[in-house]
């Protein structure tokens, strides 16, 4: 597998698994590595991977410490650790403190990205309660990445995408089907 050049980070919470299924429905292999940070009990992380794997040709697995994300790969952040990427593009799960009362929090993943690590960075905030992803999306925007929020009207809980939108740092506010179309541009 080729080392990836595009990184897509998706933050999702309550109602997220069904939205993710819509986004990844029949998703072909993309020239990108995707990290999904879903707030979910630990016992369902593998179930989420199984469901996503049934949707897409990309390889789906739970992120492990020391993994180097690859093209056409989806890594799901495990519950109980903050999923960060160090400067060697290696997954770091050493921090286990809660942020926004959750672990993993997508803010931690997004804020761990440093400038010039990738050709393209995409940050996406889906349904959920609270403000996880708000600082992260501003950071991705500052790094000249692409920022997307789920249209709050299509979110079971709108506050997470709305909070990201309210920063003024979101380029695209899209329904899940349109987020899928946006990701297909990385084929």
């Amino acid at each position: 597998m080729q080392t990836f050049k595009t990184l897509i980070i998706i933050g999702s919470s309550t109602g997220g698994p069904q939205i993710l299924r819509t986004i990844f429905h029949s998703m072909p292999k993309l020239r990108a590595s995707i990290i999904i940070v879903q707030h979910i009990p630990a016992s369902f992380t593998h179930s989420l991977c199984t469901h996503l794997q049934a949707c897409t040709d990309m390889t789906v697995s739970v992120a492990k410490a020391g993994d180097t994300p690859q093209d056409s790969q989806i890594l799901v952040a495990p519950t109980g650790a903050q999923c960060m990427i160090n400067e060697n593009k290696i997954i770091d799960l050493s921090v286990t403190t809660r942020v926004h009362a959750v672990c993993p929090a997508v803010d931690c993943t997004m804020l761990s990205i440093r400038e010039n690590m990738y050709q393209q960075i995409v940050g996406i905030i889906l349904t959920g309660m609270g403000h996880d992803g708000t600082k992260g999306i501003q950071h991705i925007h500052a790094l000249k990445g692409i920022t997307i929020a789920q249209d709050p009207q299509t979110a079971p809980i709108a506050t997470m995408p709305q909070s990201a939108i309210d920063t003024g740092a979101v380029h695209n506010i899209l329904k899940p089907e349109k987020i899928r179309e946006k990701l297909l541009l990385f084929r």
Partner: peptide
């Protein structure tokens, strides 16, 4: 798996501490 069934469009702040246990919100 817990699905919340509620008349509230926007949940109150008490949800923050248990949100990862709420699979969906109807």
């Amino acid at each position: 798996i817990i699905l919340m069934l509620t008349a509230r469009l926007v949940p109150d702040q008490k949800m923050i501490s248990v949100q990862e246990y709420v699979f969906d919100y109807l």
